[in-house]
Design a protein around this nucleic acid. Structure first.
Lengths: 148, 148
DNA sequence: TATTTTAACACAATTTATTGATTTTTTAAC
DNA sequence: GTTAAAAAATCAATAAATTGTGTTAAAATA
């Protein structure tokens, strides 16, 4: 594998460990020319997932976009946004279809958030469900309470 | 490496080839339990790059977002948008800083597009530089002509 | 700042991956 | 539907990666 520092065409593995619960392999490599070291990950081939937006337009699924949204909802909350995104990405990769609507993604996130942290859940829901007014917002909060 | 189909904890490599001009390695694997096959990629550890927007806010760099913009500019043009995005992503990964402004990204893209295809260049520039009026647009076109 | 967690480094014994050449199948384009 | 191009499969000879154990250094956390 090519060296990212000097561009030499070959490098050797000096260490290799399973990562992400065995879903990928982390390798430490050394350039055969400049001896510089770098890290690589071997992971499942990524399937391109298309997200269908409300207006019907298609976009490539973007884990970063989702992550940024989640990070906002999880600010100062004991929730690992990265982990949730990983889970969702995995689910998408493993699903039969390569398409999903923004609505469905939102539901997936909320399902997970609800179990982990109610505050983050409500924050996220308020954006994703586009609560039009205070009533719907309160209704959701009440629903949460009665669920308990 | 774990099988994505049955979840068994180990698999073996049955084929392995360089990909992306040597920047990654593509492997064909077979599950030791269910014998199903799947493809993996070994690639450089991705560094999170932050993009600083005009209003000062930070976002994670998103190659897909850039790709979508470029694809529009390159419609029906003999330019490989994917390749440009790859180049830029590589440059970002290799740069010392892990931050870049949207303006700088735009400049990078334009620099590359200019060399490859003028039509795509102008299309992209018109969006990225936010030409306020026809004059600036024409000025840019003239500058292009005189450059030749 | 003390402590804990995580990542990097080293090394040796074992096992598995790599690479070139060629064929076949699948997918995409016309 | 035919064809061209890309991806997958196969095989054999060679060389390289993996994995356990242990140490050290650097970040993250309390």
């Amino acid at each position: 594998m090519k060296c990212p520092i000097c561009g030499f065409h070959d490098s050797k593995v000096i260490d290799s460990r399973p990562a992400n619960e065995g879903n990928s392999i982390k390798r430490r490599r050394e350039c055969l020319s400049c001896q510089k070291r770098f890290t690589t990950f071997e992971m499942l081939e990524a399937v391109q997932i298309f997200v269908i937006k409300k207006d019907g337009s298609k976009e490539l699924f973007d884990r970063n976009k989702l992550l940024v949204g989640l990070l906002k909802a999880c600010q100062k909350r004991p929730v690992n946004a990265e982990m949730i995104v990983n889970e969702i990405e995995n689910e998408l990769q493993n699903s039969l279809s390569n398409e999903i609507t923004t609505k469905e993604i939102g539901e997936l996130v909320m399902e997970k958030l609800k179990k982990l942290d109610e505050v983050a859940y409500v924050r996220f829901a308020s954006v994703y469900r586009e609560f039009k007014d205070l009533e719907t917002f309160l209704a959701e909060l009440k629903r949460l309470q009665s669920d308990k």
